[in-house]
């Protein structure tokens, strides 16, 4: 296991280096520059050269890249051109918010999908099963922005139970987390159900029934444990998708996270902020995939054996 983690860590570092090159050059290849956004359009011609010089944009690209990497490695990534806010502060505030939202959505996803999926398999072809499957179809079928509008109208404006925007109170996270996790719940619910059903048809389950084990024990402990590996394998992709969806949810619920900040920075050509945040998100995705791989090995001895053999 340590060798596997070490190898994957080295792999992740190489990926990060390649990502830094792509992100840096990608930003520079895009037409326009910060001066076109930052300066008053009525007066930009006279000021644009001074700004380019100040931001080192008149230097060769390789030199700009080295400055970017140097600043990053020395812990001085700079400030936002538009807000003047130090980038570490942006990461701290927006990153923490995205982490909170992502965690809340992930917890909601698995805390809902696993029990409901097991229940659907256990009570197969009953109204329980049909009800949860209907939920899954709705979760996958309703676009998340539309679900957001429905929930805002119902819980925010009509019932006034929950705030419709902001991030100051714990209740602010409820609606965005529900919207963000809706599709993930649906996908995982179906996966858990089919995976548990597959396990229920296996010989060991029949043996457990024959030994007189209580049905709930068979379901929740034995069948579920063996049904989890595909769910964990999917987790890396699922969490990455959640990160992608945060942008829409952040805009609708005015949740000040990384997604909206990154998109704004790219559109405004706020190079420093965009580069650092894009790299950070790349790092997060690589880390999540690494954790999913390790998690799969911890849960499933068959995977562990295959890796060791390789």
């Amino acid at each position: 296991m340590p060798t596997f983690i070490l190898r994957r860590t080295l792999y992740a570092l190489i990926l990060l280096f390649i990502a830094s090159l792509i992100i840096f050059y990608g930003m520079r290849l895009a037409p326009g520059n910060p001066g076109d956004v930052l300066l008053n359009p009525l007066n930009r011609i006279g000021l644009i050269e001074g700004l380019r010089h100040k931001l080192f944009l008149d230097r060769p690209l390789w030199e700009q890249y080295l400055i970017f990497i140097h600043n990053l490695l020395t812990g001085q990534p700079g400030v936002s051109l538009f807000s003047g806010e130090p980038i570490p502060n942006i990461i701290k505030q927006a990153g923490l918010n995205t982490l909170k939202l992502g965690l809340a959505a992930a917890i909601l996803t698995y805390a809902t999908a696993i029990p409901l999926g097991v229940l659907a398999a256990w009570k197969r072809n009953t109204p329980w099963d049909q009800g949860t499957m209907l939920l899954a179809v709705l979760g996958m079928g309703i676009p998340n922005f539309f679900l957001a509008i429905l929930l805002i109208q119902l819980f925010g404006i009509w019932l006034k139970w929950l705030p419709v925007a902001g991030s100051d109170d714990i209740t602010n996270i409820v609606l965005p987390a529900v919207v963000l996790s809706a599709e993930a719940i649906a996908v995982n619910l179906r996966l858990v159900r089919s995976s548990v059903l597959e396990e229920l048809g296996r010989d060991y389950v029949r043996t457990l029934y024959a030994k007189g084990l209580k049905e709930w024990r068979i379901m929740w402990i034995h069948a579920l444990r063996n049904a989890l590996p595909p769910v964990i394998a999917l987790a890396g992709i699922m969490l990455r998708t959640l990160l992608g969806y945060t942008l829409i949810v952040e805009v609708i619920f005015r949740w000040p996270g990384l997604g909206a900040t990154l998109v704004d920075a790219v559109i405004r050509r706020d190079y420093s902020v965009a580069q650092v945040l894009a790299l950070l998100l790349t790092f997060a995705v690589i880390l999540l995939n690494l954790l999913a791989d390790v998690g799969q090995q911890v849960v499933d001895p068959r995977v562990r054996e295959r890796v060791q053999a390789a």
Partner: peptide, 18 residues
């Protein structure tokens, strides 16, 4: 001041009292 950049959200936030 809170930025409500999505126009449709402005009425929602007014009605919800945010």
């Amino acid at each position: 001041w809170v930025p409500i950049t999505e126009p449709a959200n402005r009425a929602n936030e007014m009605e919800a009292g945010t």
